[in-house]
Each structure stands twice: as C-alpha cells, then as structure tokens.
Design a protein around this nucleic acid. Structure first.
Lengths: 247, 247
DNA sequence: CCTCTCTAGGTACAGCGTACGTAGAAGCAC
DNA sequence: GTGCTTCTACGTACGCTGTACCTAGAGAGG
C-alpha cells in the first residue's frame, strides 16, 4: 500500500513507533480481536522460569517452554515474537518477587538500601540464571519500574539528584549481580574450583607473579561468603551516597 | 568396566586432577609427540577475536574460526577441547593488551587505579564482546594473572590486606564491565533506545511511578558518557580504598 | 626399524531460533 | 444474521550450532 491514504480520516495509529515495536512492553498483550489466547505472558514467563531454575537458562528454549505450556512450538511466537522477548518476560517476572511493603522507606537510607540489596541477592540465589540476564540487557518491564521507583523513594533523603541516584542504582545492581554470578560459578563446579586453586598456587609459587604470591601470603583465611558480601556492599553503598566531589 | 582392577600395578597417574583437566591452562600446549601442530593458541585466539570484533561474539563459532585458520572444523578440537575454552583463550588474549609499563606504580594509588580502569575501558571499547565474557567467567589465564599482579602492586600502598585488595579488584572490574556493557547496548540499537525513551516517559507520566517521574523532573540534562564514567569511577575507587569500617 | 601417539579432516546427529503457509475461531460493521 | 477481518494454533522446513566418532597419515621415542 503506497503513500495513498484516505483523505478525510486522520490516521488512527499516529503515535510513536508505528509498526511492530521492538520493545515487548509496547505491544499490547491483548488486542481484543480473534480468539482468546490460551496463555498469558505471566504463565509463559512462569513456565520458562521453572525450566530455567531446574535445568539452566539454556534449557529454556522456545520448544521446551511451548511444550511445558502444552502448546505447539510455533504457537509461542504469537506471544513472544523473538526469543529475546521471552528473556524480557522472565526478567520482569523475577522482578515481581520483590516485596517492598516489608521494607518500605524508613528514612534510614543506608539500612533501606542494605535490605533491598539483600532481597535482590536472595532472588538471584533462587534463580541462578538471573544475574547473567540482568547484566546482559537493561530490560525495563513494569515490575522493574516498580523496583526503580522504590529505589528512588528510598534514596530520596540522600540529597542526590535524580541522575546521580540512577547511576547509583546501576552501581548497586551491578555489584549484586556480579556477586551472585561469582557465587554461582564458585558453587556449581567443584572440580573446576579445585583445579583453579591448584593452578593459582602453582602460579603464585612460580615467581612470575610476586605480588600475587605476597597477597596469598598475607591473606586472611577465607571469610564467610555472606560476610564478604556485606563488607563489599557497605562500601558500594558508601560510594553511592558520597556526593561526587571530583578528585 | 566394574571394580576389577589389575592387582599389582599402582596407578601411574596419581597426581591431582589426573586426566583431562577442565582448565585449559593446565593442559600443556605441546606434548612433544606426534607431528607439530599447525597453529598456536595465540593464533587461534587472534582469529576468533578478529571475527568477534567484526561480527559479534556469536559469529565466532568453531566452524568460522577453523575456516579462518584454514583448518577443518574438527581439527580445531585438537587445540580447544570445548567451545568454552575458545572463550578462555579470547579472554586471555584480550588481557594481553594491557600496557603496564606505561602506568607502572607511581605510588599514587588513586591515580594508578584511575589509569588502569581507563585502559580497561579502552580495551573493552575495542572489543565489544569482552564485557559479557569477563562477567560470565572468571577465567584466569596467564595474562589475566599479570593484570592481577599489577593491580596488587598498584594497591600495595593502600594498606589493605590481600583479601581486601582482591575484593576491590572484583569490584572495580565489575564496574568497568558493567559500564562498557551499558555503553554497548545504548550505542548499538538506536531504534531500541528510542522506543525505550518513549516507554519510560509514558511510564513516568502514567502516575504509577511517582518517584520516577520526580527524578525525571529534577534530573540534570544527560551528561557526557565519559563524565559519567569518571564520576562513578571516582566513587568506586573511594569505596575500594576505604577501610571497611562496618556499619 | 617399529610402534605409539599425536594431528587433520570428514561425516553425522541432536538441538537451536525462526520464516512461512494453512486452517479455523472469534470479534466488528453492516 | 452475514461477511470480512484479524487473530490464534500448529506443522514443516532451513540454516546454523556444538561436538561425538571414525579414518588416515605424520613424526618422535624406544
């Protein structure tokens, strides 16, 4: 259909990004026409998450998820135009697990942030595939927006402006993801871990890495993981809340 | 083969991780027997990096890399027993790009760290696939160890012990990766970016996210990316160097 | 020299994301 | 109610992936 258009009818869909928005949250879940869909975004995300929790993110393929829903593989593409979007749904479904009522802003900014970060870590421990996803894509579904809004509420007493608080959120998010990811790889593969220790000690004693050897020598005995998390978290929060006095 | 074992022969390979270590750095590159290999780990990594730089990490498949080397697909498996190991090689080859001589420890810990982080960011800008890899796997090849050693040397005057400095390294690494990753997704897909802005402003004006709306209102005009990096970097370094006075 | 080990390469398989086409159900305009 | 339109459901098929397995042949060690 070329640029011909009926003269007196103002185009009904004039708003931004006219056709097939890439962002799944801009596509309505239901248009009203045609038969009622047999599944919802929520149920799809739940099915995918169940698979990923049990067998890893790679197991959550379109075929597997469709089968878990009792649907044909290609039917899933009516709900999820691309695999990416399935990941977006999973991401946002995980973000729905926050319980903000339990930690509504107390006015103590540091403490609120600490609790928020702990909740985030708990969610990521429940869903080992989550950190990788969060880091890879800045998906911003409705539940992620709830999180953002809560974060901004909590950091309101800090006196920082909006941009600084958003940067701080990215910082904190990144830290928690990174930590959860580290925990995951450390815990999962015991053989790998063992070999790594062997390799590192060999490297340290080889003489090629003197400072590494020295650090090994002066290092305290390995601390409890939660302690390490809390200690680093404390630092990150401090970094966030410090007003950026340059150099 | 059941628990039957030949009676009087003590097993010849008794040392740790006897057969087929999972870590590629524990496998010798050359055993001395048989014909000389036609390729080196370095050349393989270089070929893979060239492909990934030009066409993205997914393009660096075993077939593509083998073809780029002029080898058959399966021949590559003599050098790289699993695809994972190819990623390890790429990771370490990228770590070889640091030039520590230019920034050898000056005694000014903050400044040394700042320059190190900038060098890291530059490398990651050269290799857009790198941040995702660094985050996903804590690969520790010889060049990564050189980096670690340098980091420890630089932070020696900080007065922190070995463990604290290692945690700090993870923190700084994570931050730079996160930032580079963000830059990458922001820059690459303009349409996506545009839709995101539209979606966010719609969300902010919807009234469902009051603090988000407020933050939008009070936010300064978007700052230069490098400025944002420097500002956050400054905070992270501060967080690192602060001795961890709990609560 | 023989032998044993390594390398090179081909073939083949299961699984992936997804383009495309067909059949039928349900809402809207008349 | 009738008909048009738009949606859902699903099967088939393609190109791609990692890699298990097999066959030759080259070269070093005894």
């Amino acid at each position: 259909m070329p640029s011909r258009q009926p003269p007196a009818s103002p185009p009904p869909p004039p708003p931004v990004t006219a056709e097939a928005p890439e962002l799944i949250w801009l596509r309505p879940e239901r248009t009203g026409r045609g038969p009622r869909p047999a599944h919802s975004r929520a149920s799809i995300a739940a099915a995918a998450i169940a698979i990923a929790d049990a067998e890893g993110l790679d197991a959550a393929s379109m075929r597997r998820v469709a089968a878990a829903l009792g649907a044909g593989t290609m039917s899933l593409y009516n709900y999820v135009p691309k695999k990416e979007h399935l990941l977006d749904l999973m991401l946002d479904a995980a973000a729905a697990e926050y319980e903000f009522t339990a930690i509504s802003p107390t006015g103590n900014c540091r403490e609120d942030l600490r609790r928020l970060a702990h909740q985030q870590l708990a969610i990521m421990r429940r869903h080992p595939w989550l950190p990788a996803l969060v880091i890879a894509r800045p998906g911003i579904g409705p539940n992620a927006l709830r999180y953002t809004d809560h974060f901004l509420a909590v950091t309101e007493p800090s006196g920082l402006d909006g941009a600084a608080r958003m940067e701080g959120m990215a910082l904190l998010n990144g830290f928690v993801c990174q930590y959860a990811q580290y925990e995951r790889t450390a815990a999962s593969d015991a053989k790998w871990q063992g070999e790594l220790v062997g390799y590192l000690t060999r490297a340290a004693t080889s003489g090629a890495y003197p400072h590494l050897a020295a650090a090994f020598a002066t290092a305290a005995p390995p601390a409890d993981p939660d302690t390490v998390f809390d200690r680093s978290l404390h630092r990150v929060i401090t970094a966030m809340l410090t007003s950026a006095a340059q150099s």
